[in-house]
Simulated scan of single mutants.
Amino acid sequence: MQELYTLLLNTIKNISIWSVLDILVVSFIFYKGYLLIKETRAEQLLKGIVLIVLLIPISSILKLDMLNFILNKTLTIGVLSVIIIFQPEIRRALEHLGRSAFEDIHNGQNVEKRSETVNEIVMAVSCLAESKTGALIAIEQGTGIGEVFASGTIIDAKLSSNLLENIFVVNTPLHDGATIIKKNRIYAAGCVLPLTVNNLTNKKLGTRHRAAIGLSENSDALIIVVSEETGVISLAVNGRLTRNYDKEKLKTILLKIMENRDSKRVKTAGEKVKTWIKGMKKD
């Protein structure tokens, strides 16, 4: 016990401020990584990997040579498999890290313009829901979705509820696909979105809903879906689909999400600017 106490005391004495900083940084990275995969298929796969890692030393201690051999080989091959399987989550994380603070400020909107944009979208969605006209509308946020634009037709027109409704009229050239809202304008229509590969998704959901979830898994876009069968309005954000929105509820949640994201962008940019100013003063 005395030796353990002495060892612990010496360890504490040898801890420097850099060691503490190192631990905090690593903890923060693990925490952010967990939030990124929380409640996704990646979380279930991670649990399986942790189980394999725990079984390897146990099988070695119990002299289960065959099991130990299989687990080691599985873990070796699994590294490449994890990169392939976690591709959407890894891509989302790298896009988040690569997005600069000044670009985020540029993408931010003032309250009046944001409210006007949401009003036009909600009015169109409400009318489409009443007439049970199927629709798929993606609102670009901080992450660019240029690869989606290439699959459709560029319109780059002023956003209006009438034009948005007209695009989704059945049997018109651009109704069967997603319409993209970019910087308060109807930028493209008839776009093809990536379908989700999440096996946990409700099997009763149609192609529009699966496409909405798929894009939300790969970007921070807000995707609105109107069911042509029931007229139910749904919203996909960060890989999650919530349903049964009415006009006021949809407007409230869209404004809240956009406001929160703009606030985070400005806050992040402000913190970076302060850091740069401090560095300049030191120089």
Rank of each mutant, 00 (worst) to 15 (best):
residue 212 A to C: 06
residue 177 G to E: 12
residue 213 I to M: 05
residue 62 L to I: 14
residue 57 P to Q: 10
residue 125 V to R: 02
residue 98 G to L: 12
residue 210 R to M: 07
residue 22 D to L: 12
residue 112 E to D: 09
residue 12 I to P: 00
residue 82 V to F: 12
residue 179 T to Y: 02
residue 259 E to C: 04
residue 94 L to N: 05
residue 191 C to Y: 03
residue 93 A to I: 09
residue 260 N to I: 08
residue 177 G to H: 11
residue 160 S to V: 00
residue 225 V to A: 09
residue 190 G to V: 06
residue 101 A to E: 13
residue 239 G to F: 06
residue 19 S to L: 06
residue 205 L to T: 03
residue 211 A to M: 15
residue 80 L to I: 12
residue 99 R to M: 11
residue 29 I to Y: 06
residue 198 N to M: 01
residue 27 S to K: 05
residue 64 L to W: 12
residue 80 L to M: 08
residue 214 G to V: 04
residue 155 I to D: 01
residue 50 V to Q: 04
residue 197 V to W: 01
residue 151 S to E: 02
residue 218 N to C: 08
residue 112 E to T: 08
residue 134 G to W: 00
residue 42 A to M: 10
residue 138 A to C: 09
residue 233 I to A: 04
residue 37 I to T: 02
residue 207 T to A: 10
residue 102 F to R: 08
residue 149 F to T: 02
residue 210 R to D: 02
residue 237 V to I: 14
residue 203 K to R: 13
residue 110 N to G: 06
residue 239 G to N: 06
residue 21 L to R: 09
residue 70 I to R: 02
residue 18 W to H: 13
residue 223 I to R: 01
residue 29 I to N: 02
residue 209 H to D: 13
residue 189 A to C: 14
residue 221 A to L: 05
residue 199 N to S: 14
residue 265 R to D: 04
residue 191 C to P: 07
residue 222 L to W: 01
